[in-house]
Structures are given as C-alpha cells and as structure tokens.
C-alpha cells in the first residue's frame, strides 16, 4: 500500500464518517430485506456477470457495480440520502 493510497483511504474514511453523521442509522429489517433479495439474485445466477466485483443493492435493486466499495458508498449514500451502511454490498467472489 502506497502513501497515496493511504491518503486516499483516509479521505474516503473521513467523508464516510461525515455521511454517517448526516443520516439516521439503518433500519435492520430494511437492510435484511435487501440482503435477502441479493441472495436470491445470486442463487438465481442473475449476477454471474459481476463475479470479481462489488455489487451494491438498495430497495431491492442493484444500484452499483464496481471495484471499490468505499467509492461506491461515497456516491450512493448521498444519492439515496441514506446512511452509508444502509447500502447492502457484497464482493462476489471467494
């Protein structure tokens, strides 16, 4: 990990803490509903094209596919006006 990476990660972390303070904590039942939906999609093979990527889900829809989870949260949390941890995300791989 380089110094640039560390700086970038620190900035991401700081911004995520700001976003977390802006919005109420996630409602677990809503989070679980999205996670169940994500599991169903995976079991049905609907996300097979995204192996090796991070997939983000909100309100039973895939709202992001990317290589860096923190970058996705920085975009999706303000976009949907929710706490960053409300976005359900999973790395599709081992």
């Amino acid at each position: 990990m380089t110094a640039d990476t560390l700086t970038t990660d620190s900035l991401r972390d700081a911004r995520l803490r700001e976003l977390a303070a802006l919005y109420p904590p996630p409602v677990i039942a809503e989070w679980l509903a999205d996670r169940s939906w994500l599991n169903e999609q995976m079991n049905d093979g609907a996300l097979a094209a995204h192996y090796g990527k991070v997939v983000a889900v909100y309100n039973r829809a895939v709202v992001g596919v990317g290589d860096n989870y923190l970058d996705m949260l920085l975009e999706l949390s303000p976009k949907f006006g929710v706490h960053p941890e409300r976005i359900v995300a999973l790395y599709l791989g081992e």
């Binding site: 290589d67 860096n68 989870y69 995300a89 790395y91």
Partner: peptide
C-alpha cells in the same frame, strides 16, 4: 487480498 483490493465488507 480481496478486501485489500476492493474494500468490500469483510467476511
């Protein structure tokens, strides 16, 4: 390694 690469929620 997968976490280091993606920052994805750890397992």
């Amino acid at each position: 390694p997968s976490f280091a690469r993606t920052n994805a929620p750890a397992v």
